[in-house]
Amino acid sequence: MELTAKLVNLQKHYDLGTVVVKALRGVSLDIPSGDFLAIMGSSGSGKSTMLNLLGGLDRPTSGEYYLRGQNVALLSDDELSAIRNGLIGFIFQSFNLVAQYSVLENIAVPLLYRPGYPPVSSEDEDRCNEMAKMVGLGDRTDHRPYQLSGGQQQRVAIARALINDPAIIMADEPTGNLDSKTGEEILGMLTMLNQEGRTIIMVTHEDEVAEKAKNQIFMRDGLIAGTGIFKG
């Protein structure tokens, strides 16, 4: 089975001057390609730190993290940026759209940072429109984020995450700010993307959300405490 990510005794410590916070205390995990993994846990359990490391936003203090066979700890800041740009798509709890941009321009943001800065071609623009249509916002491409509902904003974020056709989607509490019906729609989209063959890694603290994933891990005190869903 091909692995998308492999963690070996991964540790992440934050030096706060007086104390050293050990956010991750030795996590080992294999994430196969095509997985839909939910990372669960209460706040402070280390699940967000884990997602940051997996997403290439941060580097581990010790241990190894192989992303598609590449040791992330050895990559430069610019190389990490390139990975985030091309290999990973991010979806955030609070959508994080650029306020001054239209829907279409928001979807195009990752295109601005492609390695070598190829110009945004008319095919690229067509693709942005296609993406907007796919997430059901084909008629609102000129709207600004404040003119959209939360669910619509999250759809824009999904389109943005997909524009560079990444193999992995990282979702940090994607339904946290949405009502349950809208949340289900978004989860449905993630499931669909997973069925297309993309690896989805999602952080959540809600069991109902985690249930939609193929696999679940439960974190506590910087360690993986178990797999599957713990009821109650």
Partner: peptide, 9 residues
């Protein structure tokens, strides 16, 4: 956000 989406320093 821009950094997460691939912007370099």
């Amino acid at each position: 956000v821009r950094r997460a989406l691939g912007a370099r320093r």
